[in-house]
Design a protein around this nucleic acid. Structure first.
Lengths: 209, 209, 209, 209
DNA sequence: GATGAATGAGGATTCATTCAT
DNA sequence: GATGAATGAATCCTCATTCAT
């Protein structure tokens, strides 16, 4: 019933599909905007649809329910963020510190360049949602894998529990980025990056180093 | 109209006051129980009152509104936790690691001994609340002060921004403790303490050490 | 949460309970009125509450949901009808025909004296409901027992299947009474009673054959 | 705009018309299937079209609206059933009982051989519909005529009111057949036929009385 | 102090139907 | 003939809160 979700895989074949994707995109953006500004609970389905210039039913046609819209927004945000981070990971870095710093830097760049999306992705009310939890757990999972890889490569100390450490890192990032995304004027980008990098590197390196 | 909030300061004078405090206590416990088990949104005011064996109106008499009850529960939890942590802080520790470990240890002990209260205090849905945010910010504030003191004492590196670091630490603790409080069988207490301690100590010590 | 349902068992103890029962009664009657006149689907919860002079929430407080109200109305109708029929059953009748006729007569009397309730109880839209089906099946059950008793007493032929026969009888009554309750001017009470009695007692052929 | 309704009268002239009729048939069958299994309210127009392998618009092109589809299904069912019953009526029967029995027998045969269609034709939810009522009243009308003919021929007693009796008979059949069509394993075909025949011919009392 | 019946604004969701392509 | 994305009026139900007793 719901139209195909994979927006990115195949280019629109015809005018009708192009228009459908355009409508979907408008709903996504309007939803992100309202949620970022008013909060999740205050963002009524009707308002989002109106902001997107369509009828409520259209929102439900595309996303099933309000949670479906939220999920689509979050996944889109994750997609964009992941894309950016991939380029960081692919580039070689001389030191662990440099690698971590590049990572944090990219995150802050994402927040600056996609402030609306970022304020939804990093949002306490959203975080408390079922969908939000799923995304958070996804992040923990990814982080845990990266840690295990780092341990296998000998970069990280192996006496830490990857799952718990991963959760600690994601929790730390989530708290700081949520705070900063809500109002980047609270601290300079440099300060945030410095602090997060120091926290992550200091905690992870071999104690004897 | 609302009875004095400071329940703990002065002992009940007479039978009437004792009964009032008893009612208040029952509401507090029933509220914590329902919120811990069903979540905040599912814990209806009416249900909490029923679980406490009183009428809804009584809940409103004692706490003003539902948020008032939540706040009272959280403050009670913070009280108990603070009490425990004070003994840790007052005891001298040989090393920073020992001090931090004692701190984390006490937190986990609190979760084990007051599981219901802990599952409210460390709860994503609660965290997203206005009251929950206030408590969180309180924690950040305390942590920041402790950090600043540590820097002044020369224990901590002074190139980190206390506010951001404090937020990172509290976010990290919040994420891990919320996860562990929901189901302590997920990881051994030892593992959690080890990981949190390593994260906090590693990130904080002088790089050259 | 829902107030005690047994309205008839114990008299109201105090003013508050008396008022509660009065509200409940008003909702019951308003619901029956609107359903009887507009049909089930057209009788909006808000309208019923307004007709009863209370807020919608009050309807939900008393009956849980719209189906709950319908069920209460139907059970009330069944109660009244059963009460009447009991007096018929208790009175001895010389012949089977007389007994059956008295039974049908009482049903029509009920429809005449409680036209609103009757038009809900005997209503196609209501009949299609889950609750309506339950009530219908209740009638089938009762009829089947009566038949079995009649067979045991030697009044009825024993080569018929009580369950199927009971369903046939109730289906027949339901169709005719629904039709007549909707507009009693369609046929004289006498004609309806005569026909139903004849059908139940003797079938279609000439009595002498 | 709507294609000619009389599908059966004239054979399709060309490929285009054949395809149109095939589409119509597929919608009819898909509709019957979904309504029979999920109920009328749960059978969405979109789902029916999907099950038929066409777009919703096609359903509306062929049947005008959802009620139009339902009506077409019911009329098709009535057609098939009438066809069968005609052969019964045309055959002479020695006794009234034999005639009635043959009639009931044919009905059950129809249910067994066209279970899906039968479960739509004999369906409480459908019965409560405007279209369903029309079909029901059609049955009552036919039955009344047959009764009047029987009285004119001297087969039936003339002291019964044809209209009321007809309604009683159709109500009885409807209730029993709806029940049996939903699950024929509930009773043997023989038992159902026996009971209905006995009810229609002779009533409940001992035959010899 | 306690009670609990009553409130009613508020929002998500449904789904038959349309019409431009 | 067929398509299917878009429509939007229509209703149910929730639940924190109040206040007369």
């Amino acid at each position: 019933m719901t139209p195909a979700a994979n927006t990115l895989d195949t280019p629109p074949r015809n005018a009708r599909e192009r228009s459908r994707l355009e409508t979907r995109r408008r709903l996504l953006m309007a939803g992100a905007e309202l949620i970022a500004n008013d909060g999740l609970a205050s963002a009524r389905a009707t308002d989002i649809a109106a902001a997107a210039g369509v009828a409520v039913g259209t929102l439900y046609f595309h996303f099933g329910d309000k949670d479906g819209l939220l999920e689509a927004i979050l996944l889109h945000g994750v997609d964009l963020l992941t894309e950016r981070l991939r380029t960081v990971v692919d580039n070689p870095h001389d030191t662990l510190t440099a690698a971590v710093r590049a990572h944090e830097d990219e995150m802050l760049a994402f927040i600056e360049e996609e402030p609306t999306l970022a304020r939804v992705l990093f949002h306490n009310e959203v975080r408390a949602t079922e969908v939000g939890t799923r995304i958070f757990e996804l992040g923990v999972e990814l982080q845990a894998e990266r840690l295990r890889a780092g341990v296998a490569d000998g970069f990280f100390r192996n006496d830490l529990h990857a799952d718990i450490t991963a959760r600690a890192i994601v929790g730390m990032l989530s708290a700081v980025l949520t705070w900063w995304a809500a109002d980047p004027s609270r601290a300079s980008r440099q300060d945030v990056v410095d602090t997060l990098t120091a926290m992550r590197v200091g905690g992870l390196h071999h104690p004897e180093l």
